[in-house]
Amino acid sequence: MGLVPVIARGQSDGDRSHMTDPCNAILALDRISKTFGRAPFAVKAAQSVSFALHPGRTLALVGESGSGKTTCARLVMREYTPSEGRLLFKGKPVETGDARALAAYRRSVQMIFQDPFSSLNPAHTIAYHLRRPLQLHRRDLKGRQIDEAVADLLTKVQLDPALVAPKHPHELSGGQRQRVNIARTLAVGAEVIVADEPTSMLDVSVRLGVLNLLNEMKRDMKLALLYITHDIATARYVAEDIIVMYAGQIVEWGNVNKVIDNPQHPYTRLLLSAVPDPEIRFDDPRAQLKNATVGEVRRLSAIPQERIVAIESDHFVRQIAA
């Protein structure tokens, strides 16, 4: 099997992964690479990355800092242009020349940022934050209709419009602000939402609320969600599919339960073993990560590899150097 083969060649359905299947995908990355700087100092932030987002499904992208997950998010947001490869939106490549298609793309693909405290303008009310995208992208709405739409959006994200709309961001908690951010992506009629660590700056007690909201939105509005995180436990909570990245490469991907219950790549195993587990105390030898092992896994995982192995249906792993 070649490098992420499923896009290029037609194969039997058993081999076909949801994530790399571009048919009926709303957005697909086709062997995209992104390099920063020039040789010999070039950094390959993404190496031949392929995945697809489907309506009503969540794809979790996990990996440590510097593994390339935010680069992927920025590629999807068209903040970076890929060095190689194609970005397909509804089956068609996104061309820079076509202003109308580009506007449609920007409307459909929206982002939720990590920091709810800096992603809202402190000088404006919540109503303003939601009214602006409506005025720009929903030209058919006039006057009172806009206010109604704002109230409707706030209700959708379980905030009380009468209470929240006139407030300024500093009067809201982190969780409430993140809900406003979600409402803002819905205001323009997003079809794809890229959420870059949406809950990492929130309190534990409100995290689940925000994740549940994302889950509901996905289900009810058929959104395609790209959920970027380093917390595998929450990835399992919201996502159907998972991609594990390291050093710009996708090292393992597939159905979220299959990958977590039966991790094959040494880096995935390392990542899973480091997740805090209250069952195992630090003094327990099982909990000990050996520095030498960690270094070795990192070194081996960073070597670019072409060979992909299918572990079971919907679970693939990049073979590591022997």
Partner: peptide, 21 residues
């Protein structure tokens, strides 16, 4: 108990309830 309930766990059942604060 609520604090514990608000952590999605890696294995086992998915938590569904939201911790009350």
């Amino acid at each position: 108990r609520n604090l514990w309930a608000s952590f999605p766990s890696l294995h086992g059942a998915r938590v569904t309830e939201i911790a009350a604060t």
